[in-house]
Design a protein around this nucleic acid. Structure first.
Lengths: 266, 266
DNA sequence: TCGAGCTGTGAAAATCCTGTTAACGCAGGG
DNA sequence: CCCTGCGTTAACAGGATTTTCACAGCTCGA
């Protein structure tokens, strides 16, 4: 039923017998498997673009809990399955509450471990958008997921990949205010570190490129203290009457900035 | 960390001992619980708007597998946890592959069952779009969590984030008096320092903005020595008869202020 | 009726947030 | 090895928002 698409799994364990058998079966099933014998920095896990992580925290000693917490906190979309020896109910509950998705007790049949990894991955994938390649038209924009690019009247905006994904995300949620954390989580794939300004910087780059190809339109609106909202708005008509003497109290920059801060007009 | 929002769970089991204990704990945790002792038509499960289903398929006999398959197929967004007696690896794998999210073996500690239900719900909720985008209508107000903003007839109240959250909190507890400490704790996220007047100040700002867009309505009522209560009340009709000589003892300001202090009328 | 204790207000002071720039580090291509 | 494009960070300035204060108006029990 659910296409058992190739799963990208990382295994952190030193039980060579278990791991070897698992690796063999995983290969047969066409999974992408990565192995490690100790704590892997969350950043590296991010780079692996995993579906799930199977881990025996016992080999991390006291660090185990902290590591699990860190991983689950930074990668909320990663399925985490703990597979370890004897444990108490309290330990299992603690792990599950901490963010772990499933907790299996060794000795454990590899087939069951794989089935649980599948279940967790499936659950995670559920509700996720299919790779929709349908072009999205909004305002003067044409957003084409199949090309990772946006156009205005045939001209490309020359967006980089991140810029495109950010624009796509915002446009897909048209009209809804998205918080920075949400944006970061969905575009970057992991939790935003406190104080990270990447989203703001990319918003600016986007606005710049959008304005270059589509002046007279305002697309991304700031909601102070919250995040951003996508909504194409034509601003061409708002021509302020200044026949001879332009008001020197408002520079062109200030004016364009004022347009962005439309949250008050939300 | 993760707001342990109320979970809606259905339990299909005849093990009265287990179910009773679970029901007690679920109630303590503030969960919505539904119970059944036999197969419930998937349509009814849909109507219950559940987060998860905890089921012992043993009591369905041979029908068990078919039932699980039907439920998992029809409600791909429902978390399904099987909790049953002894089982073989093959059975568990079959269940998990079929769509079940977790499989626990009895006897099982209720706390662990709950933790697993939480884990499944959490994972399921993730990647899903904000379910709390439901606008709240009250009085002339329309409160939209998805926009972090409130409107009256299409016009934004221009609330800042804090103002919005305060209003949202109050409106959600419609009719109930909330103490300052409670309000502060829920909106600010930490305990209120002694002598802090922030809540009062924000209440004033809110009343100001509410009155600006929705005169003739009174929303926030003061309860002296306690806190505030939200309750939309139309006050347009309260036109005091003063044909010729308006009573000079009561200024317009004093009058509008008096409306706020309705605790005596509570 | 009076006074201590609360609450409403308005404004100044302190913080926080976002827009913008520019420097840095990395990785791929020439 | 140098160049170029891209993403990440740090730093600053201008505003917007939140806190803090001081005072005036209200309540309620003595």
């Amino acid at each position: 039923m659910n296409a058992p698409q190739s799963i990208r799994l990382a295994v952190i364990d030193t039980d060579s017998g278990f791991v070897t058998v698992l690796a063999k079966r995983a290969e047969t099933a066409g999974w992408q498997l990565r192995q490690a014998a100790g704590a892997v920095p969350p950043e590296e896990l991010v780079a692996m673009k995993l579906n799930a992580l199977l881990i025996d925290p016992a080999l991390l000693g006291e660090e185990g809990w902290a590591y699990l917490e860190r991983v689950c906190g930074m990668l909320p979309d990663l399925g985490v399955i703990v597979c370890t020896g004897r444990s108490t109910v309290a330990q299992r509950v603690r792990g599950l509450r901490l963010g772990v998705d499933d907790w299996i007790t060794k000795p454990c049949h590899p087939e069951e471990a794989m089935a649980r990894v599948e279940a967790v991955s499936r659950r995670r994938r559920r509700g996720r958008h299919e790779p929709e390649a349908a072009p999205l038209l909004t305002g003067e924009l044409q957003i084409r997921p199949d090309q990772f690019q946006a156009f205005v009247g045939g001209d490309s905006l020359d967006l980089t990949r991140r810029e495109f994904e950010l624009l796509h995300l915002l446009a897909d949620a048209k009209g809804q205010v998205l918080e920075r954390e949400t944006i970061y989580q969905r575009v970057w794939g992991y939790a935003m570190a406190h104080g990270d300004r990447s989203v703001d910087v990319f918003i600016r780059k986007l606005r710049q490129k959008l304005e270059k190809r589509s002046p007279n339109w305002s697309y991304i609106h700031t909601h102070f203290g919250v995040g951003y909202r996508f909504e194409p708005e034509s601003v061409g008509e708002v021509v302020i009457e200044v026949p001879d003497a332009p008001d020197p109290s408002m520079s062109a920059e200030a004016e364009s900035r004022a347009v962005h801060n439309s949250f008050t007009a939300g």
